[in-house]
Design a protein around this nucleic acid. Structure first.
Lengths: 193, 193
DNA sequence: GCGTTTCTGAACCAATCGGTTCAGAACAAC
DNA sequence: GTTGTTCTGAACCGATTGGTTCAGAAACGC
C-alpha cells in the first residue's frame, strides 16, 4: 500500500549498462547515469545505493544476458569446431551490434578497474574463469571423441581461443569492421582442422 | 642564460606514463601526475600544456620505447615462426614485468578512450595498423620462402596473431601469470607448424 | 474521500576536478 | 654582485564530482 516505482528497474539498469559500456566506469558520472536512466538522483540512490552498486548491478545484467549465453554455447556444442565457431561468432555479433556499444563490458572494465578496485577485479577474474573452464571441457570432450588430437595441450588451446575473443573486443573498439573480425575467427578456427 | 629546469623531462614523463598505464586516463588526476612526477602543478602546465598533452607525450614515449621494438622484431625476423615467437614473447615480457604496470598502455587506452575522445582513438588506430602491416609482411615473406602454405589467408592470420597479443594483455590485467600466458603463445604458434 | 507510505525533483553539501595566476626563489651570463 | 630570465610552490578559480536531505506530489488500501 504505497506509491509504486515510476520506472522499471531493469529497463533503467539496461540504460546504465550501456553508459558504462560506452564510456567506462571512471568517465561515467552519476549525472550521466540519471540522465541515461531517465530518473532523478535520489531515485537512483534509493533504488540502488551508490554509483558502485549501480555498476555492480549493470555488470550482473551483462553477465546474465551476454556472457552466460556464451557458456551455454560451449556446453551444448556438438563438436569443438562448431562450438568454437559459434562462440566466436557470438562475441563478434555483440561486439559489432550497432544497437549496443562496441566491444565487451567485461573486457573494457577488466582493463580499467584493475589497480583501482581490487574486489571488483577479483569478481571479474573468477567470472572469466567460468568461460575458460567451459572452453576447456569442450576441447576435452572433443579429444575424447577423437575430433582433436591427443597431443594438443587443451588448457593452453582453450585459453588461446578465449584470448582471441578478448582480442576481437579490443579490435572492435578500434575499427568495428565485422568482416575483418570474422576473418580473425576463421583463422583461429583453422587450429581445429 | 636562465634558470634550468629542476627535473628531467623524460624521467618525469616516464613516471606519468606509469601512472596512466596503471590507473587509466580518466582515473588519473593532475594531482596524481604531479605527485608521481615529483613536480609542481605549474611546472607541469608550463612544461607540457595540460593533462591531455602529458598523456599524448607519455603515449609517444611508450610507442617509441615499447611498440617500436615489436615492429623491429617482426621486420628483422629470419622466419615467421621465430618472428612471431619473439613478438609474442616481447608482449608477455612487458605485460608481466614487475617493474612496469600490467598489460599494455595502448590496449588499455584503446578500450577506455573510444567513444570519449575521437581524435586520440584515431591516432591509436593508425598506430596499431603499423604492427598489423609488419606482421602481414612477415607472413608474406614466409609464404614466398615456402615456410607458410600458399593457401593460408595471411591478412587474416596476421590479425589473428595480433588479436592474441591483445588478448594476452587483457589476461595480464586479470591474473598476470607468466607461464599461462606463455602457453597461450605456444598454442598460437602451433598455427605455424 | 482519507491516511499512510513511498517515490521524486530540486536544493544543497563538502571535496575534488582541471586549469590559472603570481610573487618570489634560483640560477646563468656578465 | 647585478641583471635578466625562468622555474617553482602555494593560493586561488569556477565547475563538477559523488552523495545527502527534505518538502511535497503521487498512489495505494481502506
Amino acid at each position: 500500500m504505497a506509491r509504486p516505482r515510476a520506472f522499471d528497474e531493469e529497463t533503467a539498469l539496461r540504460k546504465a549498462m550501456d553508459t558504462f559500456w560506452t564510456k567506462g566506469f571512471e568517465a561515467t558520472s552519476v549525472s550521466d547515469l540519471t540522465e541515461a536512466m531517465g530518473i532523478g538522483r535520489s531515485s537512483l540512490y534509493a533504488a540502488f545505493g551508490d554509483k558502485d552498486a549501480v555498476f555492480a548491478r549493470a555488470m550482473e545484467l551483462y553477465v546474465r544476458e551476454v556472457s552466460a549465453e556464451r557458456v551455454r554455447i560451449l556446453r551444448t556444442a556438438e563438436s569443438a569446431r562448431q562450438g568454437v565457431r559459434d562462440f566466436l561468432a557470438h562475441h563478434i555479433r555483440v561486439a559489432t551490434d550497432p544497437r549496443t556499444p562496441a566491444g565487451c563490458l567485461v573486457v573494457n572494465t577488466a582493463l580499467e578497474i584493475d589497480g583501482v578496485a581490487e574486489e571488483a577485479a577479483e569478481r571479474l577474474t573468477s567470472r572469466s574463469k567460468i568461460a575458460d573452464q567451459a572452453m576447456r571441457e569442450l576441447l576435452e570432450r572433443a579429444q575424447a571423441a577423437g575430433e582433436l588430437d591427443r597431443s594438443v595441450d587443451v588448457r593452453a588451446l582453450a585459453l588461446m581461443l578465449v584470448a582471441v575473443s578478448y582480442g576481437i573486443h579490443v579490435m572492435a573498439r578500434m575499427h568495428r569492421d565485422r568482416k575483418t573480425l570474422q576473418s580473425i575467427a576463421d583463422a583461429a578456427l583453422a587450429q581445429l582442422g
